[in-house]
Simulated assay, not measured.
Amino acid sequence: MLSDAIRALRETFSPPFRQTMWLSLGLTVFILVLFGAGLQWALTAIPEFGPDLAGGWVDTILQFIARFLAVIVLIPLVHPVVTLVAGFFLETIAARVEAEDYPADPPGNDQPFLQSLVVALRFTLVLIVVNLLALPLYLLPFVNVALFWVINGYLIGREYFELVALRHVSTTEAELLRKRYRARIFLAGVVIALFTTVPVLNLFAPLFATALMVHTYKRLAAGSRI
């Protein structure tokens, strides 16, 4: 696992991946800016009570609480946004990793772009809903980080593994392989979730996650044939 993670990290910033890396980064930042602009617009729409109510202190307190909550909500949304971006580049990244590191293996079959986009949107929605439901627990010290890793590690591991596996096997085979190696796939998902909690690096998570899952799939698929 560690060797695969180091390998994926090295590939994420290697020259063959840089064009995709910058495109992924640009799109991620653009979507986050849109989210931020939307939250800012929502904040300006909050009605003001004016100085007649407690000398304006009510407005000050409400604005502070609203901005605090906006930050708390925006932070968990970074990861779903990064995951959404992965839907645009997963096939390209996976194909490049396979060609670079597994040239002797049969190449994977690219999924139709629209299908990949629908899957990415569905998974992003699941991440947003689950993380928003867990938001109260994210406010608890020490528990929040561990809970984030566990929840997102499971979701990421499951989804990314199946997306990569479907390039090579049927849906049924991919699901059977995932269930057989659920612990290993969960650990790979946790590693990716850890990566997403590192500022700046989390913006490159789509490349790292896809590369790591390609290596994970190849290793598990080879083990299942022994």
Rank of each mutant, 00 (worst) to 15 (best):
A205P: 08
R96W: 13
A193Y: 09
V143Q: 03
D52R: 10
A8S: 12
I75L: 15
A174I: 02
L27K: 09
A94S: 13
I156D: 00
L84K: 02
P51C: 03
N152K: 01
S24Y: 07
D52I: 12
V130T: 14
L114N: 08
I6H: 10
V143D: 02
P206V: 06
R180T: 11
G36V: 14
Q115D: 10
A95V: 04
E91D: 03
T20L: 14
L121A: 15
S170C: 04
T28D: 14
Y138D: 03
H79N: 03
F113H: 11
D101C: 02
L117W: 12
L43T: 08
Y160N: 00
L69W: 15
E91Q: 01
I61C: 12
V145P: 00
L220D: 08
L207P: 01
R219N: 02
T12W: 04
I128A: 11
E162N: 07
T12N: 07
R67W: 12
I226R: 04
S24I: 12
T44I: 13
L220P: 06
V198W: 04
P51G: 00
L137C: 11
L39K: 10
A174E: 01
V126H: 09
R219Q: 05
K179E: 14
D59E: 06
P103M: 04
N109R: 11
P107L: 05
V145W: 11
A95F: 03
L187M: 08
L207N: 00
S170L: 03
I185T: 05
R7T: 11
S14L: 11
E48D: 06
A146G: 14
T216G: 03
L117M: 06
L220M: 13
N109K: 09
A86G: 14
A120L: 12
T44N: 08
V145Y: 11
V130H: 14
A5F: 02
F68M: 12
T210S: 05
L90W: 04
W22Q: 05
V164A: 01
M213S: 07
L220W: 08
F17I: 09
N152V: 06
E162H: 06
P47A: 10
D110V: 10
A222Y: 10
F89A: 01
T171S: 09
A209D: 02
T196H: 13
G38I: 15
T171I: 08
G56C: 01
F142T: 12
A205L: 06
L90K: 05
H168V: 02
P16Q: 12
G153L: 03
L127Q: 15
E173D: 13
V164D: 01
Y160W: 08
I31D: 07
I31E: 08
N144W: 13
